[in-house]
Design a protein around this nucleic acid. Structure first.
Lengths: 110, 110
DNA sequence: TCATTATTTGGTAATATCGCCAAATTGCCA
DNA sequence: TGGCAATTTGGCGATATTACCAAATAATGA
Protein backbone atom coordinates (compact mmCIF):
# COMPACT_ATOMS: atom_id res chain seq x y z
CA UNK A 1 0.00 0.00 0.00
CA UNK A 2 1.28 3.48 -0.78
CA UNK A 3 1.11 6.49 1.49
CA UNK A 4 -0.76 8.80 -0.87
CA UNK A 5 -2.72 11.74 0.41
CA UNK A 6 -5.99 9.86 0.89
CA UNK A 7 -4.23 7.10 2.80
CA UNK A 8 -2.37 9.68 4.79
CA UNK A 9 -5.65 11.38 5.70
CA UNK A 10 -7.15 8.08 6.85
CA UNK A 11 -4.21 7.36 9.10
CA UNK A 12 -4.18 10.95 10.35
CA UNK A 13 -7.80 10.62 11.46
CA UNK A 14 -6.96 7.47 13.40
CA UNK A 15 -3.83 9.03 14.84
CA UNK A 16 -5.90 11.90 16.18
CA UNK A 17 -7.96 9.49 18.27
CA UNK A 18 -4.92 7.62 19.54
CA UNK A 19 -3.20 10.91 20.28
CA UNK A 20 -6.09 11.83 22.54
CA UNK A 21 -5.07 8.87 24.70
CA UNK A 22 -1.35 9.63 24.54
CA UNK A 23 -1.03 11.65 27.72
CA UNK A 24 -0.63 10.50 31.33
CA UNK A 25 -3.40 12.70 32.68
CA UNK A 26 -5.83 11.71 29.95
CA UNK A 27 -5.07 8.02 30.48
CA UNK A 28 -5.76 8.53 34.15
CA UNK A 29 -9.08 10.20 33.33
CA UNK A 30 -10.13 7.34 31.06
CA UNK A 31 -9.15 4.82 33.69
CA UNK A 32 -11.09 6.70 36.34
CA UNK A 33 -14.16 7.07 34.12
CA UNK A 34 -14.09 3.35 33.42
CA UNK A 35 -15.08 2.87 37.05
CA UNK A 36 -17.59 5.68 37.39
CA UNK A 37 -18.77 8.91 35.86
CA UNK A 38 -17.20 11.98 37.35
CA UNK A 39 -17.79 15.71 37.30
CA UNK A 40 -15.00 18.09 36.34
CA UNK A 41 -14.63 19.20 39.93
CA UNK A 42 -14.02 15.65 41.14
CA UNK A 43 -11.49 14.93 38.41
CA UNK A 44 -9.73 18.19 39.15
CA UNK A 45 -9.53 17.25 42.82
CA UNK A 46 -8.13 13.80 41.99
CA UNK A 47 -5.62 15.06 39.44
CA UNK A 48 -4.44 18.07 41.35
CA UNK A 49 -3.94 20.40 38.39
CA UNK A 50 -5.64 23.66 37.51
CA UNK A 51 -9.32 23.24 36.55
CA UNK A 52 -8.66 24.85 33.21
CA UNK A 53 -6.00 22.24 32.46
CA UNK A 54 -8.35 19.39 33.30
CA UNK A 55 -11.10 20.98 31.28
CA UNK A 56 -8.84 21.13 28.25
CA UNK A 57 -7.83 17.50 28.61
CA UNK A 58 -11.51 16.59 28.75
CA UNK A 59 -12.19 18.66 25.65
CA UNK A 60 -9.56 16.67 23.77
CA UNK A 61 -11.07 13.35 24.84
CA UNK A 62 -14.54 14.60 24.02
CA UNK A 63 -13.68 15.90 20.59
CA UNK A 64 -11.99 12.58 19.82
CA UNK A 65 -15.30 10.90 20.65
CA UNK A 66 -13.95 8.94 23.60
CA UNK A 67 -15.92 10.55 26.41
CA UNK A 68 -19.28 12.22 26.64
CA UNK A 69 -20.30 15.18 28.78
CA UNK A 70 -23.60 16.10 30.19
CA UNK A 71 -24.58 19.01 32.25
CA UNK A 72 -26.42 18.63 35.54
CA UNK A 73 -27.11 22.05 36.85
CA UNK A 74 -23.88 23.87 37.27
CA UNK A 75 -21.76 20.74 37.02
CA UNK A 76 -20.63 18.83 33.96
CA UNK A 77 -20.39 15.06 34.24
CA UNK A 78 -18.16 13.03 32.02
CA UNK A 79 -18.73 9.44 31.00
CA UNK A 80 -16.56 6.97 29.13
CA UNK A 81 -18.38 6.60 25.84
CA UNK A 82 -16.15 4.04 24.13
CA UNK A 83 -15.05 1.45 26.68
CA UNK A 84 -13.21 -0.47 23.98
CA UNK A 85 -10.49 2.10 24.60
CA UNK A 86 -9.72 0.17 27.78
CA UNK A 87 -8.40 -2.66 25.62
CA UNK A 88 -5.41 -0.44 24.93
CA UNK A 89 -4.24 -1.01 28.47
CA UNK A 90 -4.00 -4.78 28.08
CA UNK A 91 -1.73 -4.58 25.07
CA UNK A 92 0.34 -1.76 26.54
CA UNK A 93 0.95 -3.91 29.60
CA UNK A 94 2.01 -6.81 27.39
CA UNK A 95 4.51 -4.53 25.69
CA UNK A 96 5.81 -3.40 29.06
CA UNK A 97 6.17 -6.94 30.36
CA UNK A 98 8.02 -8.11 27.32
CA UNK A 99 10.35 -5.12 27.44
CA UNK A 100 11.07 -5.76 31.12
CA UNK A 101 11.78 -9.43 30.46
CA UNK A 102 14.16 -8.61 27.63
CA UNK A 103 16.01 -6.07 29.68
CA UNK A 104 16.54 -8.62 32.41
CA UNK A 105 17.88 -11.09 29.84
CA UNK A 106 20.23 -8.44 28.45
CA UNK A 107 21.53 -7.59 31.89
CA UNK A 108 22.27 -11.19 32.88
CA UNK A 109 24.08 -11.71 29.59
CA UNK A 110 26.72 -9.12 30.53
CA UNK B 1 -7.51 6.51 42.99
CA UNK B 2 -5.31 9.56 43.39
CA UNK B 3 -2.84 10.90 40.88
CA UNK B 4 0.23 10.85 43.11
CA UNK B 5 3.70 10.75 41.66
CA UNK B 6 3.96 6.95 41.52
CA UNK B 7 0.59 6.71 39.79
CA UNK B 8 1.59 9.49 37.49
CA UNK B 9 4.78 7.63 36.58
CA UNK B 10 2.84 4.45 35.81
CA UNK B 11 0.49 6.28 33.49
CA UNK B 12 3.38 8.18 31.91
CA UNK B 13 5.07 4.89 31.02
CA UNK B 14 1.90 3.66 29.34
CA UNK B 15 1.38 6.99 27.63
CA UNK B 16 4.84 6.73 26.12
CA UNK B 17 3.90 3.50 24.37
CA UNK B 18 0.60 4.86 23.13
CA UNK B 19 2.31 8.05 22.01
CA UNK B 20 4.59 5.96 19.83
CA UNK B 21 1.46 5.00 17.89
CA UNK B 22 0.05 8.51 17.79
CA UNK B 23 1.37 9.61 14.42
CA UNK B 24 0.00 8.96 10.92
CA UNK B 25 3.31 7.75 9.52
CA UNK B 26 3.98 5.44 12.43
CA UNK B 27 0.48 4.00 12.21
CA UNK B 28 1.10 3.36 8.55
CA UNK B 29 4.38 1.61 9.37
CA UNK B 30 2.71 -0.63 11.94
CA UNK B 31 -0.06 -1.45 9.50
CA UNK B 32 2.45 -2.26 6.80
CA UNK B 33 4.59 -4.40 9.09
CA UNK B 34 1.50 -6.35 10.12
CA UNK B 35 1.48 -7.74 6.60
CA UNK B 36 5.18 -8.30 6.13
CA UNK B 37 8.59 -7.35 7.42
CA UNK B 38 10.20 -4.48 5.58
CA UNK B 39 13.61 -2.89 5.33
CA UNK B 40 14.06 0.82 5.95
CA UNK B 41 14.58 1.41 2.26
CA UNK B 42 11.25 -0.16 1.34
CA UNK B 43 9.38 1.76 4.00
CA UNK B 44 11.04 4.97 2.88
CA UNK B 45 9.98 4.31 -0.68
CA UNK B 46 6.38 3.61 0.38
CA UNK B 47 6.15 6.60 2.69
CA UNK B 48 7.88 9.11 0.45
CA UNK B 49 9.66 11.06 3.18
CA UNK B 50 13.35 11.53 3.82
CA UNK B 51 15.13 8.35 4.98
CA UNK B 52 16.26 10.09 8.13
CA UNK B 53 12.67 10.90 8.99
CA UNK B 54 11.57 7.31 8.53
CA UNK B 55 14.54 6.08 10.52
CA UNK B 56 13.55 8.32 13.41
CA UNK B 57 9.96 7.11 13.34
CA UNK B 58 11.26 3.55 13.45
CA UNK B 59 13.50 4.41 16.39
CA UNK B 60 10.48 5.67 18.31
CA UNK B 61 8.52 2.48 17.61
CA UNK B 62 11.55 0.37 18.49
CA UNK B 63 12.30 2.10 21.74
CA UNK B 64 8.65 1.73 22.73
CA UNK B 65 9.06 -2.03 22.21
CA UNK B 66 6.53 -2.25 19.38
CA UNK B 67 8.83 -3.23 16.54
CA UNK B 68 12.09 -5.11 16.30
CA UNK B 69 14.99 -4.51 13.97
CA UNK B 70 17.54 -6.87 12.60
CA UNK B 71 20.41 -6.24 10.33
CA UNK B 72 20.98 -8.28 7.19
CA UNK B 73 24.14 -7.05 5.59
CA UNK B 74 23.78 -3.42 4.89
CA UNK B 75 20.02 -3.38 5.32
CA UNK B 76 17.95 -3.23 8.49
CA UNK B 77 14.69 -5.16 8.53
CA UNK B 78 11.86 -4.22 10.81
CA UNK B 79 9.26 -6.60 12.20
CA UNK B 80 6.10 -6.00 14.18
CA UNK B 81 6.97 -7.41 17.57
CA UNK B 82 3.68 -6.81 19.40
CA UNK B 83 0.80 -7.57 17.06
CA UNK B 84 -1.70 -6.86 19.85
CA UNK B 85 -1.12 -3.25 18.87
CA UNK B 86 -3.29 -3.97 15.84
CA UNK B 87 -6.27 -4.23 18.18
CA UNK B 88 -6.06 -0.45 18.51
CA UNK B 89 -7.36 -0.14 14.99
CA UNK B 90 -10.60 -1.98 15.70
CA UNK B 91 -11.55 0.29 18.57
CA UNK B 92 -10.45 3.42 16.76
CA UNK B 93 -12.72 2.45 13.88
CA UNK B 94 -15.60 1.94 16.26
CA UNK B 95 -15.03 5.43 17.64
CA UNK B 96 -14.98 6.82 14.12
CA UNK B 97 -18.17 5.03 13.12
CA UNK B 98 -20.01 6.20 16.17
CA UNK B 99 -18.85 9.77 15.66
CA UNK B 100 -19.96 9.67 12.02
CA UNK B 101 -23.35 8.29 12.97
CA UNK B 102 -23.89 10.98 15.60
CA UNK B 103 -22.91 13.73 13.22
CA UNK B 104 -25.45 12.50 10.70
CA UNK B 105 -28.10 12.47 13.41
CA UNK B 106 -27.17 16.00 14.44
CA UNK B 107 -27.36 17.24 10.88
CA UNK B 108 -30.75 15.75 10.17
CA UNK B 109 -32.05 17.25 13.40
CA UNK B 110 -31.42 20.76 12.07
C1' DT C 1 41.87 0.11 0.47
C1' DC C 2 38.24 2.96 -1.84
C1' DA C 3 33.84 3.81 -3.38
C1' DT C 4 29.12 2.79 -2.82
C1' DT C 5 24.79 1.86 -0.53
C1' DA C 6 21.87 1.67 3.66
C1' DT C 7 21.03 3.52 7.88
C1' DT C 8 21.56 6.43 11.94
C1' DT C 9 22.73 10.66 14.33
C1' DG C 10 23.22 15.73 15.03
C1' DG C 11 21.46 20.06 14.21
C1' DT C 12 17.90 23.41 13.25
C1' DA C 13 13.66 25.83 12.02
C1' DA C 14 8.68 25.33 12.05
C1' DT C 15 4.88 23.80 14.49
C1' DA C 16 2.21 21.63 18.20
C1' DT C 17 1.34 20.58 23.00
C1' DC C 18 1.01 21.72 27.81
C1' DG C 19 0.04 24.13 32.07
C1' DC C 20 -1.03 28.12 34.31
C1' DC C 21 -3.40 32.64 34.91
C1' DA C 22 -7.10 35.76 33.80
C1' DA C 23 -11.41 36.54 31.90
C1' DA C 24 -15.83 34.99 29.97
C1' DT C 25 -19.89 31.98 30.32
C1' DT C 26 -23.54 29.35 32.49
C1' DG C 27 -26.82 27.94 35.93
C1' DC C 28 -28.52 28.37 40.55
C1' DC C 29 -30.45 30.63 44.37
C1' DA C 30 -31.04 34.43 47.69
C1' DT D 1 -31.41 41.14 39.75
C1' DG D 2 -26.90 40.19 41.96
C1' DG D 3 -23.62 37.12 43.49
C1' DC D 4 -21.49 32.72 43.74
C1' DA D 5 -19.71 28.23 42.08
C1' DA D 6 -18.48 25.27 38.12
C1' DT D 7 -16.70 25.18 33.79
C1' DT D 8 -14.78 26.79 29.46
C1' DT D 9 -12.07 29.88 26.65
C1' DG D 10 -8.18 33.00 25.41
C1' DG D 11 -3.53 33.94 25.82
C1' DC D 12 1.23 33.17 26.81
C1' DG D 13 5.73 31.16 27.90
C1' DA D 14 8.05 26.74 28.24
C1' DT D 15 8.83 22.44 26.27
C1' DA D 16 8.33 18.68 22.87
C1' DT D 17 7.67 16.94 18.23
C1' DT D 18 8.52 16.84 13.48
C1' DA D 19 10.79 17.13 8.96
C1' DC D 20 14.56 18.17 6.47
C1' DC D 21 19.60 18.61 5.43
C1' DA D 22 24.30 17.36 6.38
C1' DA D 23 27.52 14.46 8.35
C1' DA D 24 28.82 10.10 10.66
C1' DT D 25 28.73 5.00 10.74
C1' DA D 26 28.57 0.32 8.93
C1' DA D 27 28.76 -3.35 5.58
C1' DT D 28 29.79 -4.73 0.91
C1' DG D 29 32.26 -5.53 -3.22
C1' DA D 30 35.60 -3.87 -6.76
Amino acid sequence: MTFDSATRARFAAKARIIKAMAHPTRLFIVDELSRQSRCVCELTELIGADVSTVSKHLAILRSAGIVEDNKRGVQVWYTLKMPCILNFFGCVEQVQKRTAKEQLATLSRK
